[in-house]
C-alpha cells in the first residue's frame, strides 16, 4: 500500500471513530463504514481500528470475519447477493444464479479483476413472497428471472466505464 493511501485510510478511520466516541460498541459501525468506503478491510485498517478502540487487532479480525456484510476481503463496488434460502429456492433461484454467473463472468464468492462486481450467496433476506430476490449493495430486486437479471447486469455494466469480466481478461492475457 502506498504511504499516501495509508495516510488517507488513517484519516478516514480516525474521523469515523470520532463520530462514534471510540466505545467498543462502535466497532461494528466503524467496520461497516470502512467496508462501505474501501469495499474491504485490510490488516492495516484492522490495526488502526484496534488502536483507536484500545483493543487487540485479533478482536477486530474476529468480529469482521463473523458477519457476512463486513467480511475483510475486498469486494467489487457493486456487491450482488442472491438469496439462496427456502422460498427463493422454490421460486427457481438456480437458473437465476446460472445467468448471473454467465453475465458477470464470475462464480459465487468471486470478484471481477477490475473490482467492479462481486457475486455471493445471501441467506434469507425477507423477500420470500417475491422470490427469487437479490440485493445489489442496498437495492433490492425481486421476482427475478434469468432474463430480468441479464437486463439488470447490462444496466449496471453500461454505467461502468471500461469494465472487463474475468473471462475477457483471461482471453486478452
Amino acid at each position: 500500500m502506498l504511504i499516501t493511501e495509508r495516510d488517507r485510510l488513517r484519516e478516514d478511520v480516525l474521523a469515523i471513530a470520532e463520530l462514534t466516541d471510540c466505545h467498543r460498541a462502535s466497532l461494528i459501525p466503524i467496520l461497516r463504514k470502512v467496508k462501505e468506503k474501501y469495499r474491504g478491510i485490510d490488516t492495516y485498517a484492522m490495526q488502526l481500528i484496534a488502536d483507536v478502540l484500545g483493543i487487540h487487532p485479533v478482536e477486530v479480525y474476529s468480529v469482521a470475519t463473523f458477519y457476512s456484510f463486513i467480511q475483510p476481503q475486498t469486494q467489487g463496488r457493486l456487491a450482488f447477493r442472491l438469496c439462496r434460502t427456502l422460498s427463493c429456492e422454490l421460486e427457481g433461484k438456480e437458473s437465476v444464479a446460472e445467468q448471473l454467473q454467465r453475465d458477470l463472468g464470475i462464480g459465487f464468492g468471486e470478484t471481477t479483476p477490475d473490482q467492479v462486481f462481486s457475486l455471493e450467496w445471501a441467506n434469507c433476506m425477507g423477500m420470500c413472497d417475491q422470490g427469487p430476490a437479490m440485493l445489489v449493495n442496498e437495492t433490492v430486486y425481486t421476482q427475478l428471472t434469468p432474463g430480468k437479471v441479464h437486463d439488470i447486469v447490462e444496466e449496471y455494466k453500461s454505467q461502468q466505464e471500461g469494465h472487463v469480466t474475468k473471462r475477457q481478461a483471461e482471453r486478452v492475457l
Partner: peptide, 25 residues
C-alpha cells in the same frame, strides 16, 4: 437505530446484545 452486519444468530436476544456491544454474535 443500530445496524446489524449479516448474521442470523443475532436474532437470538443474547447474541443480539453481544452484537450491539461490538462483539461476535
Amino acid at each position: 437505530i443500530a445496524m446489524g452486519a449479516g448474521a442470523y444468530v443475532c436474532g437470538e436476544e443474547t447474541a443480539l446484545i453481544e452484537s450491539l456491544e461490538g462483539f461476535r454474535g
